Simulated assay, not measured.
Amino acid sequence: MTERLMLLDTASLYFRAFFGVPDKVKAPDGSSVNATRGLLDIIAKLVTLYQPSQLIACWDDDWRPQWRVDLIPGYKAHRVVEEVAAAPDVEEVPDALQQQIPLIREVLGVLGIPIIGVAAHEADDVIGTLATHASLPVDIVTGDRDLFQLVDDSRDVRVIYTARGMSNLEVVTDQTVVAKYGVLPSQYADFATMRGDASDGLPGVKGIGEKTAAALLRSHGDLAGIRAAAAEGQLTATAAARFAETSDYLDVAPTVVKVATGLDISAPGTALGPLSDVDRDAAGALAEKWNLGTSMTRALSALASGS
Rank of each mutant, 00 (worst) to 15 (best):
A192T: 12
G165H: 04
S135Q: 12
L184E: 12
R218W: 07
E170S: 11
E91C: 09
L263S: 04
D124A: 07
L40A: 03
A77V: 03
S154N: 12
R164Q: 14
M1R: 14
Y14R: 00
R64S: 04
D60V: 00
A229Y: 05
D124P: 11
L5Q: 02
T294H: 12
G233R: 12
V256I: 13
I265T: 08
L111D: 09
M166Y: 05
R242K: 15
K45A: 08
Y50C: 10
S295H: 10
I226R: 04
D139I: 14
S135N: 11
G20S: 10
T132E: 14
G143Q: 02
D62S: 02
T10R: 01
G209D: 10
T173S: 11
G209S: 10
A283S: 09
T36S: 04
E106I: 03
A96D: 15
T193P: 10
L286P: 11
P65I: 04
L147W: 04
P137E: 00
D61M: 07
P73W: 09
S135H: 11
A239D: 15
I140Q: 15
R164F: 07
S307Y: 10
H78I: 03
L202D: 06
A189W: 06
D144G: 10
I140C: 13
F243Q: 06
V81G: 09
A260V: 09
A214F: 07
Q66T: 13
Q234P: 00
A271H: 14
Q54P: 00
P185Y: 06
L5S: 02
Q175C: 05
S266L: 08
R145S: 14
S186F: 08
R4T: 11
D281S: 15
A123R: 01
A213D: 03
W290A: 05
G182F: 12
V47M: 03
T193Q: 07
D9W: 00
M6I: 02
V257Q: 05
A215P: 00
L49I: 05
G273T: 06
P268E: 15
A35F: 00
M1K: 11
E288M: 10
T162C: 05
D248Q: 11
E232S: 13
P65M: 06
A189H: 04
R68W: 01
D124F: 08
L263A: 09
S305K: 14
L136M: 15
R79Q: 09
L202F: 08
Q100D: 04
G196A: 11
T48I: 11
D125P: 01
K211I: 01
V257I: 13
R68S: 00
D89F: 10
V159T: 01
A271L: 13
A241C: 06
A253K: 06
D124Q: 09
W59P: 01
D144Y: 13
G165F: 03
D222F: 10
L130P: 01
Y249L: 11
